Computed example of a mutant assay.
Amino acid sequence: MTKTEYSKMAATLAIALKSLFSVLGCLITATVIYTVATDGLPFRIELLTPWMAATLIDFYIHIFVIWSWVVYKESNWTTAILWVVLLVCLGSIATCGYIVLQFLKLSTQESLQDPIYFVLLRRQEKTETEQQRKCSLLTARILFPALGSLMLVTLIYTIVTDGSPFRRDVFTPWLTATVIDFYVGVVALSVWVAYKESSWLSAALWIILIICSGSISTCAYIALQLFNLSSQDPVYLVLFSSSNRAEKGYKGTSRTESIGEGQLRKKLCG
């Protein structure tokens, strides 16, 4: 593949992802509006069935994953906190809005190189001491397995006490809306997994696992990536593919040189 062909494919990918998350954001917004109009507000105790509670735990673990990225991305704590509040209150509406905004911020050069990399990348350098890096990595290595275990226990408990979720009476209008909201977030995480994995087969396997078991597999995947980092690495390196890190000796600052072109070219060519 020539550099021109690669650049065209990268630009097409950026446009496709921006369009995808714009459509998904509109879809979940319409879903919420429709559910409010037909079933009223969700702040009612009778809606908190066992499976709704389990779904919300699953949903907010994914929100926590996205929140972690947002906190890394935003250099201003006020902006970061604002987005965290929006994520908690609006779920995938805010997720899609934030992702689309990051794609809109890309320069033409970044879109032609590796758009996913630059969307993930923090715009300003973040300095950490070695002790802070080790502490952050250790905390993350404990936290994500714990969250995955929490969801696994929640799932088992709910099945034991309330039976299978595959019953018509389980799917109230608001549970259906929450499930749609949840899977919009799964799309965002699936794009990240596809970017991370060098093989389409392994990417497909992880995406299927995340679709089927939700945040249990998400936390397992993140934990695996965290344990692949060395103790000297900053925790945010988990966001980036090993190819990006290895090729450029990644330092975490925004750069516009050709970063990770080999990785993206390989994925685009299958």
Rank of each mutant, 00 (worst) to 15 (best):
A30S: 13
N244T: 09
A204P: 03
Q225R: 15
L143H: 08
A11W: 06
I180W: 14
F182H: 06
T38R: 07
L150F: 01
L86Y: 09
I159P: 01
G214I: 08
I210C: 11
G252N: 05
R122Q: 10
S241I: 07
I93D: 01
R123C: 14
Q113V: 03
L229P: 00
F59H: 09
C89G: 00
G25L: 10
L112T: 09
A140K: 05
R122K: 15
A30T: 14
I156M: 01
K251G: 11
P173M: 02
E247C: 13
T139G: 00
L150W: 00
A54C: 05
L152E: 01
V170E: 11
L226C: 04
V71W: 11
V193P: 07
G270I: 07
L112C: 07
L104E: 04
C96T: 09
I15Q: 07
Y157P: 02
S190D: 00
I28C: 06
S75F: 09
K105F: 06
A146H: 12
K3G: 06
Q109S: 11
Q132F: 07
Y72Q: 14
M52A: 01
I28A: 10
F64Y: 02
P173K: 13
L90C: 13
I159W: 11
G91P: 04
T4R: 12
A53F: 15
L104H: 09
T154R: 00
V193T: 08
Y34L: 08
T108R: 14
C135D: 08
S202E: 03
M9A: 15
R141E: 03
S136K: 03
F118P: 13
G91Q: 03
Q131E: 12
A30P: 06
L150M: 11
S242E: 14
M1T: 13
R133L: 02
G97W: 04
I57Q: 02
K126Q: 14
S75K: 06
P50T: 03
V153C: 06
N244R: 04
D162Y: 11
T35V: 07
L224F: 13
Y183R: 01
S107Y: 08
Y195D: 13
F59C: 02
Q109L: 14
V235Y: 14
I216V: 07
I180V: 15
S213V: 03
G97L: 08
W200K: 05
I180D: 07
G252E: 03
V179T: 12
Q132G: 02
Y236I: 00
F227D: 08
P145G: 10
I33W: 04
I156P: 00
W174K: 06
G214P: 14
T49V: 10
C135N: 10
